[in-house]
Design a binder for these strands. Sequence first.
RNA 1: GCUCGCGUAGCUCAGGGGUAGAGCGCUUCCUUGGUAAGGAAGAGGUCAUGGGUUCAAAUCCCAUCGCGAGCUCCA
Length: 641
Amino acid sequence: MSDSNKITVTLPDGSRKEVARGSTPMDVAEQIGPGLARAAVAAKVDGEVVELGRPLERDTRIEILTPRDDEALDALRHSAAHVLATAVRQVRPGAGIGFGPAIEDGFYYDFDVDSPFTPEELERIEAKMQEVASAKQPFERKVVTREEARQLFSDDPLKLERLEELGDDEVITIYRNGPFLDLCRGPHVPDTGQVQHFKLLSTAGAYWRGDERRQMLQRIYGTAWFSGSDLEEYLVRREEAKRRDHRKLGRELDLFMFHPWSPGAPYWTDKGTRIYHELVEWMRDVLGEHGYQHVKTPLLYNKALWELSGHWGKYQENMFLVLDKESGEHEYGMKPMNCPSHHLMFAAKHRSYRELPLRLATQDVLHRDEVSGALGGLTRVRQFQQDDAHIYLAEHQVADEVRRMVDLIDYFYGTLGLDYKVRFATRPEERIGSDATWDRAEAALQAALGSIGLEYKLEEGDGAFYGPKIDFDVTDALGRDWQLGTIQLDYAAPESFDLRFTGEDNADHRPVVIHRAIFGSFERFIGILLEHFAGAFPVWLAPEQVRVLPITDEQAEDAAGLVKQLREHSVRAHLDDRSETLGYRIRDGETQKTPYMAVIGAREAEAGTVAVRKRGAADKQEVMDRALFQEMIMQEIGEKA
RNA sequence: GCUCGCGUAGCUCAGGGGUAGAGCGCUUCCUUGGUAAGGAAGAGGUCAUGGGUUCAAAUCCCAUCGCGAGCUCCA
């Protein structure tokens, strides 16, 4: 018989402890050890993150969270948001409060104030936050009734609005620290003293509930960490990201530009175009080897196509329309996607099961009329080229085809040294097609993933309305994730375009369509690569692969000969015989991230050699035979090393 | 699209009601230099565009265009 005043808590390692009913996670931590108690920030009780002071009323599984746990960091950041709001209320006493969650790398809080916060104000708020932290105000949690909450937040219309949305079965809790009271689900760290290492980063307008019809609030973003060194590291990472910004590098390395007369449409310089072409050709070559057909389709279509595809109704706002001269109506639209035109090509003739899987690949220019505020650099543009392909196949071929695609994606990312993560998204609430079809589609994708042995994250309900999908997020050198590749099953388009093929049984069958992209768009992909490599592209992608530097005019002709020789073998070599010191020209070559500099002085000219300096490795120069150098560099290019 | 901020030489930026500055880059000349900046001279700007206020506007105000940050990772 168990003592009714005792409860059993189960620790993560499976061990059990008996404690008095009503003990807190902090009591448990103290029992385990004083070190843990000191480090404890919050606790996870039966999967729910709670404060250390929350009494335990029944047998539970418990985990003490310390600064090493992500959930603890969330609690810290959410607490930092409260500290921010506490400080803001001192600077702007009447400020209404919206939401203030923890987000990746930090937190924000939305305030309803008459005027935006100024940078000077931000500094004052940050100083006030420091005071609030020093005061070590405990975060007190209290369960209240709806009526009590209404009273407490009678001056906060935004909180009241949120309050009324809470279901009757939900426990309504408030948190208080010092003078600040918030309707909040928690959890929080024990007191404001934990919020030591933070920094306010920026302000921005944000619509209440993200709804542009509602009022605009003033949002303050900040970051918070458990240690000063974590904070410092994060700030350095931000600086590094700024330094690598592809827009900055694009200018500095002279790769692309923009002009106000075509916003969101990049102009590629000679150097940028070389990178672009290199990627396009690589993609085409590899796809060709893998049984893809390359096709090109029109850019402009009668609206009949868009009505058939559904874009006219659902996507028209994002399309560039063209007036028909005779009718004066918008009869044509520029393509924002390639799929409808591929479907037309598939449907254009009788297809046999023997042709399947039929893989159509296109890298045509697409246009999407993004709202002006959505544009930015190469990552959000109006004109771009996708590495787009659509595969038409019989349902039983799906698993095998998906496996091939994953292999292909792995090859492309692997060659570039990009790590990636996989997400598998299943049927959403709003969808078309029967459950039986979804069952088969999801099973096929899962089977493909399973047979490759790929780790993936399941995202239930995140699929497209027309089918499940697999997304690929690459992680760049700074640890940032970018969604690039996607594999999407589509059961809807074959219906609306009435796609058929003749099966072995001589009867008509409906194919399945797979939409897939690997780089996404070349524009965005180059932007990501630029930031990933910090502009220092691998040799095969570098716009300028070798810069040949004669030391004096005496060697200029000899150096020009080497340039010519390399170019004859398709190595992108340039001569720098400017009337500048060697040091100056070396510096310029390094700044421009040229992978190799080949120096020719009197000694090299005499011996027919070249002094090779590799980018970023000044100490590893090597004097070598010119033929050897050429061979080495050609091999490196060929291997895409 | 909306809110806020920004727009001065090719680039990075300073200045600021009395008709423009620096560094880098560019051009020319000198220099012929052995691995991250040799020297000198020079060219280059309707201060984004259009209105307004003023004796006077790059500077203040308004509009337009462009750029940037942000616009539910739900109390």
